[in-house]
């Protein structure tokens, strides 16, 4: 089936974020993989974010507001033609407190879906996560296109509620597609990702048990491609797709590949990893659960707890139904990521 025509205008929420800026780059600059004409509106929280977006694309139009503020969403969408697409990426993953998860990830998605529906725009692409589905029951298991919800703590619960809010609007007539990326990586990464490189360089990346947990990851340009494919492929409303690299990687493979990418980029890498018993991951997970139950959030514990499990997903549906073709895999993506850090003057 032919693609939908390129939209007259494109709206991106969360556009100063990692994924948001990657989208602005690819959609609204000549160097982008999916450069398009027409207006690109970018929702940002403040002037600093607006500057960050303009640094990526001079022609993107930054609008200050928040997904938690429905009035600002009215302003964001005002005067747009009906064949406008909205890519909703705004979300929090490591907040100061658990309630932020729900305000932004659940409430924000509900507000955006309602606003798009009210404005009568063409399609919404909702960027969700693996987190509403938790972790695989075993290291051999792989998430299929359709899975039962099993939210992983506050983030997962809030992202699930976000999906459900979008699906409610689908019932009411909204055309929406959900995209579910797992752990992503690549240029424009936030500071916590440089910690990741530093841990690998120092031979201190935490590895639970034999390191045979499988992780799906997605290079950010692959993700942008998946989002655009979801946006432009005709089909029934309410579909959801995993968007990840071609296959899942084991933790051992991740550590080895990133180490190799760092070495090949001229960094000295201490071989090895910080071997931890599986029980340490369980302890971290339990501690994370307890702390989150008091409304607080501790990033390291959260990441540790999740690292002891597999999160692997099957991208077959995106490949066959959307024509999604992930072009970059771990080694190449990590080299590009390292090169970007160096250009930005970030210490690894």
């Amino acid at each position: 089936m032919d693609d939908l025509a390129l939209p007259a205008a494109t709206v991106i929420t969360g556009s100063a974020g990692w994924l948001g800026r990657a989208l602005v780059h690819h959609l609204a600059t000549d160097a982008g993989d999916h450069a398009r004409d027409g207006e690109v509106r970018a929702l940002v929280l403040n002037q600093t974010e607006a500057d960050a977006v303009h640094a990526v694309s001079a022609r993107a139009r930054a609008i200050i507001g928040s997904v938690t503020d429905p009035d600002s969403l009215e302003r964001l969408l005002v005067g747009l033609p009906p064949d406008t697409d909205v890519i909703h990426t705004a979300g929090v993953i490591h907040p100061a407190k658990v309630s932020d998860f729900f305000a932004v990830n659940a409430g924000g998605a509900a507000n955006v879906a309602a606003a798009v529906q009210r404005a009568g725009l063409r399609r919404m692409v909702h960027v969700s996560s693996n987190s509403p589905f938790g972790t695989n029951a075993s290291d051999e298991d792989t998430f299929r296109a359709h899975e039962p919800y099993n939210p992983y703590l506050g983030y997962g619960e809030s992202k699930m509620q976000g999906e459900l809010a979008v699906l409610d609007q689908v019932q009411a007539g909204l055309d929406a597609v959900i995209v579910r990326p797992p752990w992503f990586y690549g240029p424009l990464q936030p500071p916590r990702q440089t910690t990741f490189f530093r841990l690998v360089r120092g031979g201190r990346f935490p590895k639970f048990g034999a390191g045979m947990q499988r992780r799906s990851m997605v290079y950010v340009d692959n993700l942008v491609q998946g989002i655009v494919r979801a946006e432009l492929t005709p089909g029934p409303s309410g579909r959801a797709y995993w968007i990840a690299d071609e296959r899942a990687y084991t933790v051992n493979e991740i550590i080895e590949t990133v180490g190799r990418a760092l070495t090949d980029e001229g960094y000295e890498v201490k071989p090895g990893a910080m071997a931890l018993p599986v029980i340490a991951g369980r302890v971290a997970e339990r501690a994370d659960r307890i702390i989150q139950s008091t409304g607080r959030y501790q990033q390291q514990l959260h990441v540790m707890g999740e690292m002891a499990h597999s999160i692997a997903c099957d991208i077959g549906a995106a490949q066959t139904e959307l024509g999604y073709r992930p072009a970059v895999a771990l080694y190449e993506g990590m080299r590009r990521s390292i090169q970007w850090c160096r250009r930005e003057g970030l210490e690894l």
């Binding site: 029951a137 075993s138 899975e147 039962p148």
Partner: peptide, 16 residues
């Protein structure tokens, strides 16, 4: 522990 996770996953998927 893995068996118990598989039972949970199996029952949930069957419910879906």
């Amino acid at each position: 522990a893995r068996d118990k996770q598989l039972l949970r996953s199996g029952l949930s998927r069957l419910t879906l």
